[in-house]
Design a protein around this nucleic acid. Structure first.
Lengths: 190, 190
DNA sequence: CTAGATTCAAGTCATGGTGTCTCGAAATCG
DNA sequence: CGATTTCGAGACACCATGACTTGAATCTAG
C-alpha cells in the first residue's frame, strides 16, 4: 500500500501529515467548521502553511482523508444471525456515525460542502463512504436470500440509507434509535 | 400577512428587497455559491451594504427567503386519480426541484450549510420546506385510505423523501426519473 | 562524500470579503 | 416642521487566502 520512496529529495514527513489530519479532526469538533481555516490548521498542527497546501488543495480534501478510515471502521458491523438483525445493526451504526461520531460530523460537513462545490462532490462520489458500507451489508443480506425483488445496488443503497440519512441531514434525528428496527423490517419487506 | 407600517421614518423599500432576492438567486445560479458574497450581493442589487445587513444577517437567510415561495409552488402537485399516481407525481416534482430548479439549488445549498452551521439548521428546520410539501401529499394519500400501517408523520416523510433526496445529495441522481414509479409503489406498499 | 532534488517551518505580501460605522439625502410620521 | 428611520455610498480595521521567499534538513544518485 505504501510505495517505497523512489524520488530524490527529502521524503514527506509522516509526522506532519498526521499532525495535520489530527488538527483538522480536533478543530472540526472543538471549534466548528467555520473556524476551520487552512491558516488555523497549519498553526494548530505546528506546521508551515505551504506544507498543508503542498499536499491538499482544500479543507475538504483533508477532511475526507481524516474521515475515510474511521468511517469504514465505524460502519462495519459484525455478521448477525438474522438478516433483520444485521440490517438493524447497520442502521444503528449508521445513526451513531451520522449523529455522534467525529468522522460522521466530518462526513456531513463534506456532504454539505458538496452541495455547492462540484470538486468536493466529485471527491465524495469517488470515496463513496456511505454507499460502500451500505453495499457491503446489502450483499450479505442478499446472500442470505433475504431480500426480495430485483433492484440495482444503487437504488437499494438509497432505500436503506436514505430515510435515516435524510432525517439526520434535515436536523430531525431526535429519538431515531427507536425506529431503526421498523426501518430494517420495512427495507427487507420491500 | 403584511403588517401595515406603524412606526415613523422612511419605510422599507420593496424595490431594494426584491433586487436583493433576485441578485441572490441569479448569483447562485450563474456564479455559484462560493462567489456569493454579501458584498457582491449588495453590488449586484445596486444597494448599500448596510441595507443588506439591516434585514438579513447572513447569506443563508436571504437564500431561504428567495427559495421558500418558489419551493412551495414547485412541490405542489395537482390531485390525481390514484394514490400511486399522486405519490409518483410528487416524487417527480421533488426530483425536478432538487436536480433542476433554481429554488432547489438554493435548498440544497442551505441544507449543505446547515450541516456545519447550527443557525442555518434552525432556520431550515423552521421553514420545513421539503417536510411540509411531503406532508401535504401524505395526508391526501392517507385520506384515500391508501396508506397501510401507522407511522408518525415525520417518519413517513423521511420514507417518502429520503431515498430520492439521498441520491440527489450524494450526487447519484443520473437517470432517477425511471425509478420514481417504483419508489412510489414501494412507499405505498410499506 | 558531494551535488542535486525535495521537503520542512516560518514568514511576507497583495487581494478580497467581513461586518461596523459614518455621511448626507429621502421618505414618512405626528 | 421636526423626529425618526431607511436609503445608497463608501471608509475602516480585521482576517483568510494562496502564492511566494528564505534557510535549514533529509533524501538519492554518482
Amino acid at each position: 500500500m505504501v510505495a517505497p520512496p523512489k524520488s530524490p529529495g527529502r521524503p514527506r514527513s509522516e509526522d506532519a501529515r498526521l499532525a495535520i489530519l489530527q488538527a483538522v479532526d480536533g478543530m472540526l469538533v472543538e471549534e466548528g467548521y467555520a473556524a476551520m481555516t487552512m491558516k488555523g490548521i497549519a498553526e494548530r498542527a505546528g506546521v508551515g502553511r505551504q506544507t498543508v497546501y503542498r499536499w491538499w488543495s482544500s479543507k475538504a480534501e483533508i477532511l475526507l482523508e481524516a474521515c475515510t478510515h474511521d468511517a469504514i471502521d465505524e460502519l462495519t458491523v459484525p455478521a448477525a444471525e438474522s438478516a433483520a438483525a444485521e440490517v438493524a445493526a447497520f442502521l444503528g451504526a449508521l445513526a451513531a456515525f451520522l449523529t455522534g461520531s467525529d468522522a460522521g460530523l466530518a462526513y456531513r460537513a463534506l456532504l454539505g460542502e458538496a452541495q455547492h462545490d462540484e470538486a468536493v462532490a466529485k471527491l465524495l462520489r469517488e470515496a463513496d463512504i456511505l454507499g460502500g458500507a451500505a453495499a457491503r451489508t446489502i450483499r450479505r443480506v442478499q446472500s442470505h436470500g433475504a431480500l426480495a425483488g430485483e433492484g440495482d445496488l444503487r437504488g437499494l443503497v438509497a432505500e436503506l440509507v436514505g430515510p435515516l440519512a435524510f432525517r439526520v441531514l434535515a436536523g430531525d434525528a431526535a429519538g431515531i434509535e427507536g425506529e431503526l428496527e421498523g426501518m430494517a423490517e420495512r427495507f427487507l419487506a420491500r
